[in-house]
Amino acid sequence: MKSAAKRAGLCIVTMLIVSFLAYAAFALISGDPAQTLLGTDATPERLEQMRHQLGLDQPFMVRYLKWLLGFFTGDLGISYSYRQTVWSLIAPKIEVTLCMALISFVVIVAISIPAGILAAQRSNGKSGLLSTGLIQLGMAVPPFFTGILVSWGCGIVMKWFTPGDFPGLHSAKAATALRHLFFAAVCIAIPRIAMTVRMLRSTVIGEMNRSYVRTAISRGNDRRGVFLRHVLKNSLVPTVTFLAQTMAEIVGGSIVVEQVFGIPGIGRLLVASISNRDYPVVQALVVIMAFWVVLAGTAADLINQRIDPRLRLGGGE
C-alpha cells in the first residue's frame, strides 16, 4: 500500500498549495480590512489599534501559517460584515450544504448506475433512441429552472414543502428540513444523472466490445456471467472517477439551487460574502471547497487503486 500513502501525501501537498494561493490572492487584493471594519471616519489611532488586533502588522508568512492553523483550531478570523467568527458563521452552513450534497449523490448513484447499465444493454432501436432523448433532455435543463418548477409544483401546488422557509436541521422540524433539502438535491441531481448514464452507457458498450469478452464467451459464460464477472468490474474505474468529479461539482451546483430554494448553505453565504467584500469568509469558503474537490479526487484514486492492480504501481509498469 505504498502507492496509497504516496497518493495521500500528494493530496496534502495539493491542499497546502491551494490554501497558500487562496490566501495570497486575497491578501493582495483585499485593501485594508481595518478600514472596512471601522468605516471611513475612523481615526488613525483606532485603525492602528484594529490592525494590531487583527494581526495585520505581522509578516505575511506568519499570518498565513496562523490562518492555516485556524482550520484545525476553528479560528479563521472574524467576518467583517457579520461581526462574528468565520467558523461559527460557516459551520452550520457547511452542515446544510454537505447534507444536501450527500442526498444528491445518493440519488445520482441510485438512479444512474442501474439506468446506465440498462441503457447499455438496450442501446439499439427504440429504447436506444428513448434513452438518448432522455439524456439530452436531462442535460439541457439547468438546475435553477427545474428548481423553479419543483418549487412551484411540489412546494406551492402540492404543499410538500414551503419554498423559502427552511426550518434548520437542528430545529424541531428536522424532517421538514430534510424534505426541503431533498427536493433541492433532486434538482441538482437531474443533469448529473443524465451525464452519468451517458458515460456509463458508452463505457459498458465499449467494454462489451473488448477481446476479453470474446474469451469469456468462449469459456461458456452467459450474458449475465460475462457482465457480472468481467464487464462490470472493468467499467468501474472510469465510473468512480466520474462520480468523484460529480461529488465535487454538486457543491458548485448547490450555489444556484440554494438561492432558488432559499436554503442557507455555503453557496448562498459565498454569494453574499463576495458582494459584501467579506474576505475572511470568502477565503475560508474557497479553500474548503477546493479541499472538497481534492479530497474527492484522492478518494477516487484510492478506490481505483483497489479495483485495478495496474494503478497500484504509481502509473506505467
Binding site: 476479453y212 464467451i217 468481467h230
Partner: peptide, 18 residues
C-alpha cells in the same frame, strides 16, 4: 463452449481480463 471446445486467441494481452 469451454467444455468441449477451447479457444486460444491471437493477442493474449487483450484476450485476458486485466
Amino acid at each position: 463452449h469451454g467444455k468441449k471446445i477451447g479457444v486460444v486467441f491471437q493477442d493474449p494481452m487483450s484476450a485476458m481480463d486485466p
